[in-house]
């Protein structure tokens, strides 16, 4: 099997954001479960945090293509 080491690098770079996004949404679910009326506010904050954490994985895929 042949492939590219850069893609392995992308796989590694996706671990961190994956955990981070999981934590963000876990906290969001917790928050909504405790205070359902705060859902709207929490939602935009959660999506903002998700977007910021996701940026790291996106860097990973971009760099994987740069170095492939």
């Amino acid at each position: 099997m042949d492939g590219n080491l850069a893609i392995v690098g992308y796989g590694l770079s996706a671990i961190g954001p994956g955990i981070g996004i999981g934590l963000i949404f876990a906290a969001y679910i917790n928050g909504v479960a405790r205070q359902p009326e705060a859902r709207g506010m929490l939602q935009s904050i959660a999506i903002l945090g998700f977007a910021l954490a996701e940026a790291l994985a996106i860097f990973g895929i971009a760099l994987a293509f740069v170095f492939s």
Partner: peptide, 9 residues
């Protein structure tokens, strides 16, 4: 990141 996020997804 703004451009890459959209592009990457």
């Amino acid at each position: 990141t703004l451009a890459l996020r959209l592009f990457g997804n």
